[in-house]
């Protein structure tokens, strides 16, 4: 009944084989294969897919989504949900425009202030959730409407343009042949990965997601962690907003609409459990990439962009269903580790 990775004693484990086993045994491995298969499929199906132009577009889109889904990973790992991230993107996009264009502030000053505006939404979410025990679903549903309404109210619905060109580099620039947003997203994802796997704070996020009551009894400062995850989520959404605003060089009160769905979908496709306690940044990166590729693929295959939302919705439901099924059959060495074990057993006989 033990999984393959555990049944072998370390003594007879050759390092190379152990590394291979770890790679293949990781549950993210199946996702990696899915990404590769999709890339090959799209490359065959559409001559425009593997062009420098399209790959830049896709990678920039995935990078933008990755900021948000990375933040969402913290929230979902703790067993919560944050529906307000899309509206935070709108609020911060508008704030960036108001501060930088209308008030004429230096970007060095305006950017932190705009991101702070987004972080405050997270502070509100986290504090209300931690102190009142209103489900995060409801709290963030409310703040989603509030942030979005605030963005509309501040601009009376109009867009803001006329940003300084130095700022636009954040969204449009390219460094070493790779778009700047991709570099930034890679750094953010790496830091998030380290925080979740190597720090006490990250461990506490997992503990709360696995069993909040037990986390309280183990001396975890549950409220502080709960507030932090929502601040992280909305700060990263704010970060994404700044970069998107720079990319489009316009502050829009309707920016970020539907992003919460993409982010939640990416995290779940990445193998995280919506019940908390299970998931990883690596999974989220792959999930975000897969979802980005699918949406790009729809365009490549000449399916109207108007259908995109329907596809993302269906994919998310499918991902959750697969996820639950896998959890149900968790006993025994199923999954890729089990497959590898069976292959090795056969070859050794």
């Amino acid at each position: 009944m033990k999984s393959a990775t555990l049944s072998v004693s370390p003594a007879e484990d050759v390092p190379q084989r152990r590394l291979l086993r770890r790679i293949v045994g990781a549950k993210e491995f199946g996702l990696l294969i899915a990404v590769v298969v999709l890339v090959v499929f799209l490359a065959i199906q559409s001559p425009n897919f593997l062009t420098a132009g399209n790959l830049t577009v896709v990678s920039r889109q995935v990078a933008l989504a990755l900021f948000i889904s990375t933040g969402m990973t913290f929230v979902i790992l703790a067993g919560q949900i944050d529906l307000s991230v899309g509206s935070v993107v709108a609020l911060v996009s508008v704030s960036t425009g108001l501060l930088m264009v209308d008030a004429g502030l230096n970007p060095v000053l305006a950017l932190p202030l705009a991101i702070l505006a987004g972080a405050l939404v997270g502070l509100f979410n986290g504090a209300v959730f931690a102190f009142t025990r209103i489900p995060s679903f409801v709290v963030t549903l409310g703040s989603m409407a509030m942030a979005s309404g605030l963005a509309l109210g501040l601009t009376t619905g109009s867009t803001i343009s006329g940003f300084p060109s130095g700022f636009l580099f954040l969204g449009q620039g390219v460094w070493l042949g790779v778009p700047v947003p991709v570099w930034l997203a890679a750094v953010v994802a790496l830091v998030a990965h380290l925080v979740l796997t190597k720090t006490v704070f990250g461990r506490h996020v997992f503990l709360i997601g696995s069993n909040t009551e037990a986390a309280v009894l183990s001396g975890v400062r549950v409220r502080a962690v709960k507030i932090s995850i929502f601040v992280i989520s909305s700060s990263l959404a704010a970060f994404a907003s700044v970069i998107e605003t720079a990319r489009l060089s316009v502050g829009r009160p309707d920016a970020g609409s539907g992003y919460e769905l993409v982010a939640i979908g990416a995290v779940v496709i990445g193998g995280a459990s919506l019940f908390g306690g299970e998931g990883s940044i690596l999974g989220t990166v792959l999930g975000t990439t897969l979802l980005g590729l699918i949406l790009n693929g729809l365009i490549m295959l000449n399916i109207s962009a108007y259908w995109q939302e329907m596809f993302s919705g269906a994919i998310i439901v499918l991902a959750v269903a697969l996820n639950m099924r896998r959890r149900g059959g968790r006993a025994g060495g199923r999954g890729w580790a089990g497959v590898l074990a069976r292959i090795q057993k056969k070859s050794s006989v």
């Binding site: 461990r203 503990l207 696995s210």
Partner: peptide, 23 residues
């Protein structure tokens, strides 16, 4: 209900109340 993190490894469960000793 209130002591174990059922889906987390035994080792994580054991050190969960003494983070200062492992960090």
């Amino acid at each position: 209900g209130s002591a174990l993190f059922l889906d987390l490894p035994v080792s994580v469960n054991i050190v969960s109340a003494c983070p200062q000793r492992v960090s």
